[in-house]
Structure formats: structure tokens, C-alpha cells
Design a protein around this nucleic acid. Structure first.
Lengths: 136, 136
DNA sequence: TATTGTTATACTCTATAACTATA
DNA sequence: TATAGTTATAGAGTATAACAATA
């Protein structure tokens, strides 16, 4: 079969998904990296900003303004660890949990709409394979 | 099932594929955008640089240095259209065809190695779905 | 006047290195 | 002295706007 390279196809889909999500994020005033942080913290609190940075594949320096903004808006809690005051303990506030849940639900709905183009068997195989091919 | 967003998974795979291809491209001294141009032209000559740019999802201005380099290395032909001298006719030289073929073969081999992690049925469904979900 | 290609410039994103505070 | 976080700066990549040639 004469198809494009996998990298091209994947890159194209990646851009398409981003374009689908952007309006949702815009509507909630949450930039993509902020959403990535909310998602990471929704799985549990994090000790140290550096570990959060590597967890979401970002640089620790470019996380700072993101965390500043989330904190200013009351979406995360960010306090020095009493046992080692160099470290910041990060977690979602109630408000942060709520906004993450809302956005996440909307994004999933949009993604499912996209996937509904596929026959069910392919859809399942696609998601399963994607998970397998994209380890952290 | 509790999985990451599709956008995250796709982005992760995209980066992984890029990391796999980079050493191959480096070995041949061909940057990614140059390879994109070679690939586009391997499907046939192009009339006008602007149409080539949109075809590969690039900006026409950032194509210029790419084309300059490919031309200097004798991999593409780039001549004014005699019927409209504003337009440049672009095509691969023999040398350009050869290097594209070599790189393309190596990249496909690397991609197939990656896909071989998957059971055959999933592999086929994955590629089929990816093509369907990433229209130009 | 409109269009193709080119150049120059500005802007965004990201990474590097230096600095502060805690240990 | 070493580490977490922060700030300042520089670099790459990209897009915007002005320009030259041709129609």
C-alpha cells in the first residue's frame, strides 16, 4: 500500500486534535500547558515542581508562569513542604478539580465524536494500539 | 477505561516517531522539512512554491532556505516557468530521487519495527484508522 | 493592479545559565 | 556543597509585513 509515513500521519492527527481542543480550552480560559498540569494533578498531588515538569514532558522553567497563573486563579494549592521548605507541594483545589472535570468531559466528547467515524472494532484496536505505541 | 486523552497519546507517539527518524535524516544530512519536500516532489513535479508549501503544511517563507539548500546540493530542479516567469517549476533530480528513496526505505523499516510490537490484526486496523483520521 | 517569490523583521516558544533560599 | 525553585537571557522556529519581479 502506498501511504504516507507514519510520522506524517501521526503529526497530522496530532494537529487536528489540537485544533479540536483549542476552542474548548479557550472557552474556559485554560491554556494547553495549564490543562496538562490540571490533568497530572487530578491523578493525585505532586511533591516538587521538577517532578511534575518531567511527568508532563515540560521544562521546569516554563512551568513557573503556568503555576503562577493557576495559583492566582485559585485552581491549585502550592505550599512549601514543612519537612523541606525548598520543595513545593502541589495539589488541585476544589475549584481546580471542578474545572478540570468539566474540560476533560468536553474534550472526551469531542474525541469520541471523531472516533465515531470508525467501525467499532477498528476504533477499539486503534485506541489500544495507540496506548501501546506511546509509552511515557 | 481510564486512559490519557487522545491528543496526549498522539502527541507522545508523534515525538517518539520523530526521535526514531531524526538519526536517519541526520545520517543523510537532510533536515525534516527538506525530507518533506523530497517526499512531496517524489509524487510528481510541482508548479509554484506556494502550492508546495500548503501541500506539506508549511509557510511559503520558511520553505525558501529549504529549497535553496536542496537546489545547491543538486537534489531538486527549480526553474522559472517559461509561460509565467513568476512561477518556479520544482522537480526532483535523479540524485534527489535516489536520496529520497534511500531515506524513505530506512524510515519505513524503522516504522515497521515499531509496528511489529502489535498483533497483526491490530497493526492493520491501526494504520487504516490513522489514515482515516488524518486527512490532509 | 494582482500574484509569485524573496527578504527583513518581529514574535512565540523553548532551553541555558545565573541567582536565591533552603538543606 | 548540593538541591528546589526562580529569574534573566539567548536561541530556534515560526509568522507578519514589506519589497522586487513579472503578469
Amino acid at each position: 500500500m502506498n501511504r504516507d509515513d507514519l510520522a506524517v500521519l501521526t503529526f497530522r492527527l496530532s494537529r487536528r486534535l489540537l485544533a479540536i481542543e483549542q476552542p474548548i480550552l479557550d472557552r474556559h480560559g485554560v491554556p494547553m500547558w495549564s490543562y496538562a498540569v490540571l490533568t497530572a494533578l487530578s491523578e493525585g498531588p505532586t511533591r516538587s515542581q521538577a517532578s511534575l515538569a518531567t511527568a508532563i514532558g515540560a521544562d521546569k522553567t516554563r512551568l513557573i508562569p503556568v503555576l503562577d497563573d493557576l495559583q492566582r486563579r485559585g485552581l491549585i494549592s502550592r505550599e512549601p513542604d514543612p519537612t523541606d521548605r525548598r520543595v513545593r507541594l502541589l495539589s488541585l483545589t476544589e475549584s481546580g478539580q471542578r474545572i478540570h472535570g468539566t474540560i476533560h468531559t468536553e474534550i472526551r466528547a469531542a474525541e469520541n465524536a471523531l472516533l465515531s467515524d470508525l467501525p467499532q472494532a477498528d476504533r477499539e484496536a486503534f485506541v489500544r494500539s495507540l496506548i501501546r505505541l506511546s509509552p511515557r
